[in-house]
């Protein structure tokens, strides 16, 4: 039974999710180390699928490894690298290993990665992929071929509340909900006004769709500038960048800002939790979770 489903559908608990570091080597020892760090705090952890268009251990293999180490995976599938056959194979592979949480994404373009000469696939888009995951839960492949028993996926997706066209993002959230997504993890957003508008809009037209905004822990203005300059779809207002870059103690100021953003996000309609990520080697996770009133899970 998916704890993500249980917590989001049958309780009012705030649900925290995170991202498992991409795996490039180090075997299960590395998985174990990361699992120990994340397990006390998170109901579900994303098993990424070649994030930022860089090759790593596969989404399915990573999700299985996480599950073996007591982490509930939210297995991402992106549309960039696989056609509809391979995407359905990913879904069925997940089901085979008892992985119920499936998250469907468009995926960064190949030009964002370190092998920009690759062929981009995009045979289907994320909304079609969500719908196909839903179809599979009804006991058939896209072709109509029967699956018995049908997998019991708890389907999710992502959305960017802060990228243009802003009004359409809300309608697109509804479209993903209708296709089968039960909750959306949201892209990093430093524009509180845009996040407010998005959440209010979604609460109005898709009241059952749950939202999980993303909060990123950073230690200085440098990673913030990196996101602002290098990651399409993320924009950080200048006054927020200045606030951190001009502070005597950048790490402390960045931390305070992050807690403010997190507390604000948690007050918004339809928000049921937070997705917490960090820029590697950040040691403020525990402090952050305690400051949000959380205690380690058993």
């Amino acid at each position: 039974m998916s704890q993500m489903r249980e917590k989001l559908e049958n309780t009012n608990e705030v649900v925290f999710t995170s991202e498992f570091p991409a795996l490039d080597g180090g075997g299960m020892a590395k998985v174990e180390k990361n699992a120990a760090r994340l397990a006390p705090w998170f109901v579900g952890v994303n098993a990424t699928d070649n994030p930022a268009a860089h090759a790593h251990a596969s989404n399915t293999a990573s999700a299985i490894a996480m599950k073996m180490h007591g982490i509930e995976p939210i297995m991402q599938i992106v549309c960039r690298d696989k056609n509809r056959l391979a995407i359905q194979a990913d879904m069925m592979g997940a089901a085979l290993h008892g992985i119920d949480n499936i998250s469907l994404l468009t995926g960064d373009d190949v030009t964002a990665g370190d092998e920009p000469e690759s062929r981009r696939v995009f045979d289907i888009d994320s909304t079609q992929a969500i719908n196909i995951a839903r179809i599979i839960t009804t006991g058939k492949y896209l072709s109509g071929r029967k699956i018995d028993p049908a997998p019991d996926f708890y389907i999710s997706a992502v959305e960017n509340p802060a990228a243009p066209p802003f009004d359409y993002r809300i309608e697109r959230a509804l479209k993903k909900y209708r296709a089968g997504a039960k909750y959306l993890q949201l892209q990093i957003c430093y524009h509180s006004d845009r996040l407010e508008k998005f959440c209010a809009g979604v609460a109005k037209i898709a009241p059952d769709l749950k939202l999980i905004p993303t909060i990123v822990l950073v230690k200085s203005a440098k990673p913030m500038s990196f996101m602002h300059d290098k990651v399409p779809g993320i924009d950080i207002p200048q006054d927020i960048l200045n606030r951190v870059s001009s502070a005597a103690d950048q790490a402390e100021e960045a931390y305070k800002l992050t807690v403010e953003l997190a507390k604000h996000a948690m007050t918004l309609p339809s928000v049921r939790g937070l997705h917490v990520t960090d820029f590697r080697h950040d040691d403020s996770l525990e402090r952050f979770m305690y400051d949000l009133g959380q205690k380690p899970r058993n």
Partner: peptide
């Protein structure tokens, strides 16, 4: 669309659109 998306934009739309 370079990603041939038929159901709306991806999350990578830049601040200038």
């Amino acid at each position: 669309c370079p990603k041939t998306l038929r159901n709306g934009p991806c999350g990578g739309v830049r601040e200038n659109g």
